[in-house]
Design a protein around this nucleic acid. Structure first.
Length: 618
RNA sequence: GCCACGGUAGCUCAGCAGGUAGAGCGCGUGCUUGGUAAGCACGAGGUCGCGGGUUCAAAUCCCGCCCGUGGCUCCA
């Protein structure tokens, strides 16, 4: 709705001619003294903001101390006008609401009119207001409900006792203490940029892209490679687990009745995109597409549990600006999202347990061990009471105490979830893997399966992000590396994720040819290798390789050529003070690297093999 | 979204009682052909985040915006 507010000594108008949409009017016109004139254009969708508009008008009327108000329909203020009938209704509503406190006049809608106005000319006498619904950033019911949730906190001990957090002895569990205080006190004592931000830039992994929205990153070749390897690995793990990989759209009709209700239940802010006729929201997970797909599927009890999977590139969540930092929290992120359709609570529990174990295993293979994260279980009181033994059995997997948050009522769509929360170098926690048991959406989307008796049954649905967002996994690996730096270790990525696995350094120009020969051999064996053929000293080249965290540095000189061996510096076994250096044959090196990357995906080096040909990308 | 701080060469940063724009690294050229974490010399490189204002004169002072960081809020 557009408003132009003029505080006038007087306003007079006269009706001239009707248009097709004119309302009845039997006077010729009128003249009103000492009046606040509201030129108004009612726009599409304004039904929702009438109250807000009235508030604005009251506000201005009070400020200029006006007793009389004239509402004057003025279509020229907008190019997106509402239907005339709706516009008249809204104007009438405004009129009647204001009547309690003001002397209100309303010029007839749909007439050609002449008018004279005498604007007072004081600073507030000419104002314009644009009233818009606050839906660019949509605050869902779930976001608001979240504030009302009453939580009770416990620790589930390794001996399967549920004790209140006051009674738990945190002495041997420093990280858990940090996590609990993070969850409950929400206290931050951090005044530093998280270490991974500098690392992600220095290692040419990712960077901020100022030309995009906040929280949308640019990925350099090395970062894209790491991300690609993780994406491939995690997808393969889920497919191996039995999931069917699919792909679904990234945007959906905002007005779609089912999706609309789901949006309301999901506490995240959306991006809104205008289409030709409809408005769309960008997905924040793969649930939409997968649920719409399964709601059209014929599923029988024989097909259960049925798992479908998508790697969302991207999921979009319009997180608040202050929440966005580096790779920890983004507005566009990549997430493995698997949904499992199960018959009943018993099958849900079995799957939940298996996916819990799968998540542990996936993170472990990526290089994030159970020591690096703390476990949270969030559960409704009812579900806990009914499934006590099952929930207690979860501690058996890792034998670590678990933070339990219990809700007296169910506010969200799930009754049980777990999260693995990574604790970073600044003691902040963020969720990686998570699985939830969803009791609402099968019904909402009309998803059913045919049971043995031929009847339609409502399944339960598990949501699983087996690793959490890929970007966040990289954040965790980098934060972990920075903790290694603090404790005096040489930081590195797992070998299979290292963009360059082997660097070959020829000592003098005459060794370059041999270096390239060896590199070609390694490359054929699917090892990412490059050659530092720059005109620099050996010391400099070794230093550069080290600051890039390259796991194996091979030096080639006269000695090596003669002995047909190479001198290899092994980063994992070195410290800054003493480097672990061994002589080995090229074949031994190949075997070693291949062994370390066994069962992990491989992608070739997305950079020129010769350093002299390589640009600096940041 | 609110509050605070920051944005100067590709990178990290100095300069800021208003008066010709600086360093280190990187890059280019030359010397050097080297033995495991930074060889030497020379050179190129700047809309001082963007827009407006004050002023004879703005990187410097003022206002607005953008981006980043921290805090608050928030984080199914």
């Amino acid at each position: 709705m557009k408003l132009l507010l003029i505080h006038a000594d007087f306003m007079e108008y006269e009706v001239k001619r009707k248009t097709k949409i004119a309302e009845d009017f039997n006077k010729k016109g009128e003249r009103i003294e000492e009046v606040l004139v509201i030129f108004t254009a009612v726009e599409k969708g304004d039904e929702a903001i009438v109250e807000k508009a009235i508030g604005e008008i009251r506000d201005v009327a009070d400020k200029v101390n006006a007793k009389r108000i004239l509402i004057y329909p003025y279509a020229h203020l907008s190019s997106n006008l509402a239907d005339p009938e709706i516009a008249i209704d809204i104007l009438k509503k405004i009129e009647s609401e204001l009547r309690d406190d003001f002397e209100v006049y309303r010029a007839p809608f749909g007439w050609y009119k002449s008018f004279k106005i005498s604007c007072k000319g004081h600073p507030l006498s000419e104002l314009s207001r644009e009233i818009r619904a606050e839906e660019e950033v949509e605050v869902t019911k779930a976001l608001k409900d979240e504030e009302k949730v009453r939580s009770y906190w416990y620790i589930l001990t390794p001996s399967k006792e549920l004790v209140s957090i006051e009674d738990f002895d945190f002495n041997r569990y420093e990280k858990l203490r940090k996590f609990v205080s993070y969850e409950l006190e929400k206290r931050r004592e951090v005044d530093r940029i998280p270490p991974h931000v500098e690392l992600m830039r220095r290692l040419e992994i990712a960077d901020y892209e100022e030309a995009s929205d906040s929280g949308h990153m640019r990925w350099y070749p090395k970062g894209r490679l790491i991300k690609n390897l993780l994406e491939t690995f995690i997808t393969e793990k889920c497919v191996e687990y039995g999931a069917m990989e699919v792909e679904t759209p990234i945007m959906y009709d905002r007005a779609h009745p089912t999706l609309r209700k789901y949006l309301e239940r999901f506490p995240a802010r959306q991006y809104i995109i205008s289409g030709d006729k409809r408005d769309f929201f960008l997905r924040f997970a793969a649930c939409f597409g997968q649920f719409l797909m399964t709601s059209n599927s014929v599923i029988t009890y024989k097909n259960l549990p049925m798992k479908i999977y998508e790697l969302t590139r991207y999921s979009f969540r319009k997180e608040q600006r202050g929440e966005l930092v580096g790779l920890r929290r983004l507005r566009a992120f990549t997430m493995p999202d698997m949904h499992t359709i199960v018959r009943d609570v018993e099958e849900a529990k079995r799957e939940f347990f298996n996916q819990y174990k799968l998540s542990v295993e996936v993170l472990r293979e990526i290089g994030i061990t159970p020591d690096d994260f703390e476990i949270a279980i969030r559960v409704t009181k009812d579900f806990y009471e009914d499934n006590k033994d099952f929930i207690h059995s979860i501690v058996d997997v890792l034998k670590k105490p678990i933070l339990v948050e219990m809700w007296d009522q169910r506010f969200f769509y799930f009754v049980l979830k777990f999260e693995f929360n990574f604790i970073d170098a600044l003691d902040k926690a963020s969720a990686l893997s998570t699985v939830q048991i969803d009791v609402e959406n099968a019904e909402r989307y009309g998803i059913f399966y045919i049971d043995e008796d031929g009847g339609k049954k409502r399944p339960l649905i598990l949501h699983c992000s087996v690793s959490g967002a890929i970007e966040r996994v990289i954040y965790a690996l980098l934060e972990k590396a920075s903790m290694d730096i603090k404790s005096g270790k040489l930081p590195m990525l797992p070998i299979w994720l290292s963009p360059v696995q082997v660097r070959i350094i020829p000592i003098a120009g005459r060794h370059i040819k041999k270096a390239i020969e060896i590199a070609e051999k390694l490359k054929k064996e699917k090892i990412r290798v490059d050659v530092d053929n720059r005109d620099e000293t050996t010391g400099k080249k070794v230093r550069d390789a080290s600051t890039e965290w390259i796991p194996y540095i091979v030096v080639i000189g006269d000695k090596e050529v003669e002995m047909d061996k190479v001198s290899v510096t092994i980063r994992k076994e070195s410290t800054l003070e003493s480097q672990k250096r061994v002589e080995m044959s090229v074949d031994e090196l190949i075997d070693r690297v291949k062994e370390e990357c066994r069962d992990k995906p491989y992608k070739p080096l997305p950079l020129p093999m010769l350093l002299s040909e390589r640009a600096t990308l940041r």
